[in-house]
């Protein structure tokens, strides 16, 4: 709506005031980027690329008077900032989460739209909305009190038999806090994003093409496979990338159910683990007591890395959406 018809003074004032608000998100993004980069610079100088290869992340002896200096940056004695375990944990949990969430969301929504009567459909769609609205701390609480223990007692032991084929499935299965539990909880959290988008996408599938397939004598399954799924494929990819971004950055639920492992790479899929996001939340308190201030910078390095990864997945998702540009635009944060 940019027709240059004459604007009154009131119009101009409203335009100016709302323009400030319109530019605000961009301003905040720029501000965030500058703060993260500036705060991370000392840590980048201190750790360099060891950050990506080291598996030891320790703030050092925060009560010692001795310090170490590297590239002009001082840190407490014994401090080392290697983030490999968190990087592995972040990618492992979020990718496993997608492996669960994508087929479940697509399959579940297909079932919903193809077989469930319309009335019941709307009721069941409410569940998707509820799932999207549940706070992550509640997912964490449920994950550690209800879901984790049930899985560790009844499901994970059965999975260990796969260990003969894929060694990563070998036990011990632990108490239900770890990589697999975190991935499953994350998966459940991502489902609403992918499922609600899939539902919107299904509405856009041309009826004529489906009717044509049925007229050719195809079964409902064949119509779905030949007409529906190819039509919504790209949209699902976009939603999955956005869901991935959410899973990468999820903090509290993962922090509660991941078992919070420091400095140990997972040795099987039940092992305790940590993600970049959960580590920032877990260590910021302790980092504040670092008299050299370098721990806070190290966490900024972690935050910057997380920011870059999640923005990349987000961009990728938006790019794919632009290419399909159906009406079904998922919004960033669930719901």
């Amino acid at each position: 709506m940019s027709t240059a018809s004459e604007l009154t003074t009131g119009d101009r004032i409203l335009r100016a005031v709302s323009a400030v608000a319109g530019f605000l998100p961009g301003g905040i993004v720029g501000f965030f980027a500058v703060v993260m980069i500036l705060t991370a610079i000392p840590a980048i100088a201190f750790s360099g690329l060891n950050f990506f290869t080291g598996t030891t992340f320790t703030l050092g002896n925060l009560y010692a008077v001795t310090t170490i200096t590297h590239n002009g940056v001082t840190a407490p004695h014994g401090a080392a900032y290697g983030a490999l375990t968190f990087i592995v944990g972040t990618f492992a949990t979020s990718i496993f989460a997608l492996v669960l969430a994508i087929p479940v969301s697509v399959g579940g929504v297909l079932m919903l739209t193809e077989w469930v009567p319309r009335r019941l459909q709307n009721t069941l769609a409410v569940f998707l909305e509820l799932l999207a609205g549940i706070p992550s701390v509640v997912f964490g609480l449920w994950g550690i009190v209800v879901f984790g223990p049930i899985m560790a007692q009844h499901v994970y032991p059965a999975l260990t038999s796969i260990g003969n084929v894929i060694p990563w499935f070998k036990g011990p299965v632990g108490a239900g806090e770890g990589l697999l539990t975190a991935s499953l909880v994350l998966g459940i959290m991502v489902i609403p994003i992918i499922a609600s988008t899939t539902r919107e996408l299904l509405r856009g599938v041309p009826v004529l093409a489906k009717e044509g397939a049925i007229a050719l004598g195809m079964t409902r399954y064949e119509t779905t496979r030949v007409v529906t799924l190819p039509y919504i494929r790209t949209g699902i990819l976009a939603a999955s990338l956005l869901g991935w971004g959410r899973a990468l950055g999820e903090t509290i639920a993962v922090l509660i159910v991941s078992g919070n492992a420091l400095n140990v790479l997972p040795h099987n899929i039940y092992s305790p683990t940590s993600t970049i996001a959960s580590t920032i939340a877990a260590l910021l308190d302790a980092a504040l007591t670092d008299f050299t201030g370098s721990a806070v910078h190290a966490l900024a390095y972690l935050g910057l890395l997380l920011l870059v990864i999640s923005l990349l997945t987000n961009f990728a998702g938006r790019l794919v959406i632009k290419r399909v540009s159906t009406g079904a635009l998922p919004v960033g944060r669930g719901i």
Partner: peptide
């Protein structure tokens, strides 16, 4: 882009 920034990063900043 802002909606893609992880919440813990916002908290940290």
């Amino acid at each position: 882009v802002l909606s893609g920034v992880p919440s813990i990063v916002i908290g940290y900043i």
